[in-house]
């Protein structure tokens, strides 16, 4: 664990504040994962509100505890890619079709506009974009239960 050369805190407005080595203060800093799907805890950038990179984090776990917690909290409130755990039912096998799913962020329903909105992620993952552009992730479709697999198979 190595101490980074900047300070990180959260202000009363709920924004992350970064104080750089040269005492420059940046408000509204956001952590951005470089590979949100393939390597979620590695390669995170801290980016200023203007979109400039301020710091690079090779691995989140290398950071001091409190920094890590701040960044994780911010990521949780920013990143939204529900992971589908089970497909309960679909309204039809022909798109547009409404899917009722259980995700790691609770149960929900979304509309799949067309089969082309299901993107294959190598090797067996799927990224499903709903009609509002929200991405739903299936990390490994082979690990889904039989029922979900059967429903999903009709769209692949």
């Amino acid at each position: 664990m190595n101490q980074p050369d900047y300070q990180l805190s959260r202000n009363a407005f709920g924004r992350l504040v970064l104080v750089a080595k040269n005492h420059q203060v940046y408000e509204g800093v956001v952590p951005i994962r470089a590979f949100p799907v393939t390597a979620s805890d590695e390669s995170i950038a801290l980016v200023s509100a203007q979109g400039h990179e301020l710091a690079w984090i090779e691995n989140l776990n290398d950071l001091p505890e409190e920094f890590c917690a701040l960044i994780r909290a911010e990521l949780i409130s920013r990143e939204f890619m529900p992971e589908i755990k089970r497909i309960d039912k679909v309204s039809s096998f022909i798109t547009p079709s409404t899917w009722w799913v259980r995700t790691d962020r609770g149960d929900t329903a979304f509309v799949l506009k067309g089969e082309e909105d299901i993107r294959r992620l190598p090797p067996t993952g799927l990224l499903i974009t709903d009609s509002y552009g929200i991405h739903f992730l299936i990390r490994d479709r082979l690990l889904l239960d039989r029922h979900s697999c059967k429903l999903l198979d009709r769209f692949l």
Partner: peptide
């Protein structure tokens, strides 16, 4: 909003008072 999630925030001059999130639908 960011990546399909909307953020509604209430501020006063000192701090953020509350925050709500919603999908873009």
């Amino acid at each position: 909003d960011h990546a399909g999630v909307g953020n509604l925030e209430l501020f006063d001059t000192q701090a953020r008072l509350a925050q709500w999130c919603y999908t873009l639908g």
